[in-house]
Design a protein around this nucleic acid. Sequence first.
DNA 1: CTCTAATCTGACCGATCGGTCAGCGACTGC
DNA 2: GCAGTCGCTGACCGATCGGTCAGATTAGAG
Lengths: 194, 194
Amino acid sequence: MPSIPPAPRVQTDASAELRVIALQMFAEHGYTATSLQQIADAAGYSKSSVLYHFRSKEALLEEALAPAVQTLGAFLDSTVARASSDELRSAFVVEFVDLLLEHRLAAHIIINQGQTLSDIPMMDEARRYIDCIGESFMSELPTTKQRIRLGIALAGAAYVLVASRPSVADIESVDEVREALVDVVSELIAGLNR
Amino acid sequence: MPSIPPAPRVQTDASAELRVIALQMFAEHGYTATSLQQIADAAGYSKSSVLYHFRSKEALLEEALAPAVQTLGAFLDSTVARASSDELRSAFVVEFVDLLLEHRLAAHIIINQGQTLSDIPMMDEARRYIDCIGESFMSELPTTKQRIRLGIALAGAAYVLVASRPSVADIESVDEVREALVDVVSELIAGLNR
DNA sequence: CTCTAATCTGACCGATCGGTCAGCGACTGC
DNA sequence: GCAGTCGCTGACCGATCGGTCAGATTAGAG
C-alpha cells in the first residue's frame, strides 16, 4: 500500500479521453459517418488501441452516452411525482434545462440520431425515458393542442441548444441562455392549465 | 404525333418512384446508413438501375429534396418582407406550418441530418435558407430571451412533426395538429413584442 | 425488316469499414 | 533476474460500400 493510494493517473486516462473525443465527433459528424480510424487519429492512438479499450464501436458510443442517460433516468424518477403538482413544475423546468445544458453533446446525439440508431440498446433506452417523461404529462393533457404545446416547449428547448453550431458556444452568456430557456418553457408549461 | 401527346407513363416513372422511396428510407434510417442496394431492393430494381437514373447517391438525395428546398426558397422571399409587419406574421406562421406538413420527410432529413451532411451542397443551401429566415427576425430581436423564444417556436414546431414516429401519421387528425401548431406558434410569435 | 436510343442488369473494381490476432516494449511483484 | 500483466500497435480479414462498364433487352422510327 503506497502512501498515495489513488495515484494521479486521472489526467491521462486513455479510456476517458477516448470517450470525450468520440462523443464530440459522433455529435458533430454522426455515428455512422465517424470511423474508428478517425477517432483514433484525433486522439493520437491507433485504431487497435481504441478497440482495446472498448469492445466495439457500439460499446464506445454506449459508454460515451452512459453518464447522460444515467442522469436522464434519475431525472425521470423525480419527474413522475412532480408532473401533477403545479408548483413543482417550475423546478422540473429548471432541472430539464440544466440537464440539457450539462449533457449537450449527448443530447445532440440522442435527439438527432436516436431514430436512426434505434438498434443500439442504450439509445432506445434513452428514447423510452424521454417518451415516459412526455407521457407523465400527456395522461393529464387529453387535447391535441395541449400535447402540441408541451411538445413545442420540450422539443423546442432541446433543439435550440442542439441546433446551434459548435462555434456558438457563447460560454459567457450561458447563464443568460439558461434563464431565457427557463422563462419561455415555464410560460408554455403554465399555459397548459387553461 | 399520336392523338395522346403526353402519354400516361407518369404512373410508372422509375425516377420519380426512386425519389419517393429514397426519401422515405433516408428519413427513416439516415442517409449514410441507407445503401443504394437497399433502395434498389425496396424499389424492385438493381443497384445499377438506380445509378442509371441518378449520377450518384448524393445526386439522388439532392433530387429527392429538391421540391422541398425549392418551396423553402420561395417561402424565404415572402418572409423577408413580412417579418417586420405584425399583422402579416400570422400568415407567415400558417405558411410555415403548412410547409412543414407538406414536406415532412424532407424536413426530417434537413433538420436531423443537415449538420452531418454539410458537405452536400443542397443540404447546406437549405440550412442557409433556414438561418436566413431566422435572421430576418433576429435583426429586430436583440435580447437573448427574444431570440430563444423565436427559436423554441420555430424549432419546436418543426421538431414536433419530425420527432413523431412514422406510425403516428394520424392522417385523420392532421387538421387538428395543424390548427394546434398554428395557435401555439402564433402565441409565441405574438409574445415577442413585449 | 433494320437501326437507334433508352432502360436495365450482372460482373467487377478499389476503397473503407468494423473487428481479430500475434507480438512489441514497459512496468511490477516475487 | 524473471514471469506476467498492461497498454498499445501493425498486419491482416471478410464484408460492404459507391461507382464503372460491357452487354442484354426492349421499343419506336424509318
